[in-house]
């Protein structure tokens, strides 16, 4: 039996765990290629038009490996934190895959609650039974996988650069370098270091989130909002770049809330969609870094808006 691992959505977060898990169980697996034009095209072909880019790309990954494996892992990750969700589309992901892509091999459909070890194990045991592995084997593989998972450090925290920005957005937008046109490298080349929310303490994020009227129920939105507002308020970074996929329901709310909170702080919202032309992004990033430099030169009491362009 060969297990297929689509390299989309939260794969990069849990890659270390799932590959180790399958290795310990001595199961063969294939991983789809890094996102490329063909995968994007496949995704656009199969997925419903209204879905967002990450979901389409996930469809593409699944479609690219479906004929070469017997079981595809399509995780229905309902939540990674108690009483919180990721996105409604995650809750219906297996159904979207099954109904959009014809001739699918078997897939995993059980809901996955990653915040509790017990529930995660239950999912893995169910998954193990599809691979003819018993509970003890699964448990052992889980422990080995978790060891490696816990050791990994996610996110970036560049130093040694003149300017530093916080790069936020859903993890799959930041991790997939095809989708975001390797924005990190582009920024580094412009002399801007990149930091992600992983390097902001949970305590500091929570303090900002608690000021909201209502507790946000989307995990990534909570991280994003907390880190943006905290770092923006304390001016620990020069600017914030928000990577958002077009038509993302969660970002549509939180970008506005962050804007309202930070007012003049330099915030660049980059929307990503199926377009693959890079010139537009390059120009915007260059203009943005120019603006950061200008702001530094003129003092922080200059708002980062256009009116001051000619005053220097």
């Amino acid at each position: 039996m060969i297990v297929g691992l689509p390299k989309g959505l939260l794969f990069h977060q849990y890659e270390k765990f799932i590959t180790e898990f399958l290795k310990v169980l001595q199961i063969d697996y294939i991983i789809s290629k890094d996102t490329n034009k063909d995968i994007l095209n496949l995704g656009v072909k199969y997925c419903v038009d209204e879905a967002c880019l990450p979901i389409k790309i996930f469809h593409g990954h699944v479609a690219s490996i479906k004929d070469r494996c017997d079981l595809v892992i399509v995780p229905r990750i309902v939540s990674v934190h108690e009483k919180e969700f990721i996105c409604p589309k995650f809750n219906g992901l297996p159904e979207m895959i099954l109904h959009n892509i014809p001739n699918m091999p078997a897939i995993t459909t059980k809901p996955l609650y990653l915040y509790s070890e017990k529930k995660t194990l239950a999912w893995l045991e169910d998954f193990g039974s599809m691979l003819n592995k018993n509970k003890n084997q699964v448990r052992e593989a889980y422990i080995r996988g978790k060891e490696i998972y816990d050791r990994q450090k996610l996110g970036y925290n560049d130093k040694r650069y003149r300017r530093r920005v916080l790069l936020v957005g859903h993890p799959y937008n930041i991790d997939d370098i095809y989708m975001n046109m390797n924005i990190k490298k582009k920024l580094n080349d412009l002399g801007v270091g990149v930091m992600t929310h992983h390097y902001v303490r949970d305590k500091d994020k929570q303090k900002e989130v608690d000021k909201l009227y209502k507790r946000p129920f989307w995990t990534f939105a909570r991280h994003t909002y907390g880190s943006c507002v905290y770092l923006g308020r304390t001016q620990q970074v020069d600017g914030i770049i928000y990577l958002s996929s077009f038509n993302c329901g969660i970002d549509s709310i939180f970008i506005q809330l962050i804007k309202n909170e930070l007012k003049d702080f330099p915030l660049l919202v980059v929307k990503i969609d199926e377009h693959t032309g890079e010139a537009g992004l390059n120009t915007r990033l260059e203009a943005y870094t120019d603006m950061l430099e200008r702001k530094k030169k003129n003092g922080s009491n200059f708002p980062a808006s256009r009116e001051h362009l000619y005053s220097m």
Partner: peptide
């Protein structure tokens, strides 16, 4: 409405 997250899922199923 455009961009409704849950209904995008149900739309995929309705085609089936």
């Amino acid at each position: 409405p455009v961009g409704c997250m849950p209904e995008i899922v149900s739309k995929s199923i309705l085609t089936s």
